[in-house]
Design a protein around this nucleic acid. Structure first.
Length: 299
DNA sequence: TAGTTGCCTTCGAG
DNA sequence: ACTCGAAGGCAAC
């Protein structure tokens, strides 16, 4: 068993961090969160300033949950108006974790035109079918499949995971990864713009998926992914920063054109600054949270 | 070249 | 039974 003491309990909240929808494989049982990250199974729980974990090293926990970063400083840098302040206040302690780029990329390709429970089912199916089996506390866990494995399986086998039209993109990217055409360590070294440009060349990767991968796994905290929830949040609370005509036009569209995407995402990066991605994550979670509240009390 | 439209898998909610 | 929408993207036009 390992322990880690935080300076201040508001500097990290495990439930918000793992429950906000940035990751898809964590499961909570009682007070413990069970996870499988980079081929390691472990569990972790929080009690105030204390983090308690089993089957994993302290260094891994520090790195994965970015405990080396000063969250208060990041949050004050994006705290630009009353609305974001409310979101920051409500979910203070939410951090963006360091995901593995390969798993992150495939996960967010699964996320195209899907809701979060659907993405989780896809990834669970992929892992059970093609990932390495592990045992922890007598229960079976499955690692996320390797690029080599996914490059070998047939399209119909992939589609059995409920991937639909995404299956062909996933296999293409698996092939390019084992061929070395995609090298995630190189992406980390590049600027945000250059890395994004390279990601956009992959079939199945548009602006939204690229920004998610850049933010959640490639150390680019300025990335500002715009999905339907963030679009709604921005048009609702920040419409004064856009042309009336633009707002009216984009409000009821299902999908954004590349240009419209860049207008909203570019606003986010300029307005919130170098940690715009954190603002995006708080706005996203806050918007979904408020929507759930409305539904729960509507009857 | 930039912007638009139709289509794509699946699946649960209503 | 039927439609709608979901952490969208592609290709034709």
């Amino acid at each position: 068993m390992g322990k880690l003491l935080l300076n201040d309990f508001t500097s990290f909240n495990l439930d918000y961090t793992l429950g906000c929808g940035q990751t898809f494989r964590w499961k909570k049982a009682g007070n413990w969160w069970y996870g499988l990250v980079n081929d390691k199974v472990f569990k972790i729980r929080q009690n105030g300033r204390e983090l308690i974990f089993e089957n994993i090293s302290k260094d891994f926990i520090k790195n994965y949950f970015t405990l080396d970063k000063n969250l208060q400083q990041i949050l004050s840098s994006i705290s630009r108006d009353e609305h974001i302040k409310q979101a920051l206040q409500r979910f203070r302690g939410l951090r963006i974790v360091r995901q593995h780029p390969w798993e992150c990329l495939i996960s967010y390709i699964c996320a195209t035109n899907k809701n979060i429970p659907g993405i989780k089912r896809n990834i669970e199916a992929l892992s059970q079918k093609f990932g390495e089996e592990m045992t922890f506390e007598g229960k079976k866990f499955y690692a996320f499949p390797t690029p080599a494995k996914l490059a070998k399986v047939s399209l119909s086998e992939l589609k059995e995971c409920g991937l639909g039209f995404r299956a062909k993109y996933i296999r293409e990217i698996a092939e390019k990864t084992i061929q070395g055409i995609i090298n995630f360590e190189d992406f980390k070294e590049m600027s945000y713009k250059k890395a994004k440009k390279k990601l956009l060349r992959l079939r199945g990767v548009g602006h939204k998926v690229a920004d998610c991968v850049l933010l959640f796994s490639l150390e680019k905290p300025e990335a500002f992914p715009v999905d339907v929830w963030v679009k709604r949040a921005i048009l609702k609370h920040y419409s004064m920063h856009f042309d009336k005509e633009f707002v009216r036009k984009v409000l009821h569209k299902k999908s954004l054109s590349p240009n419209e995407y860049n207008v909203i995402s570019g606003f986010g990066r300029e307005y919130f600054g170098e940690y715009a991605g954190y603002a995006q994550e708080y706005l996203f979670h806050y918007e979904r949270f408020n929507s759930t509240l409305k539904h729960s009390f509507s009857f």
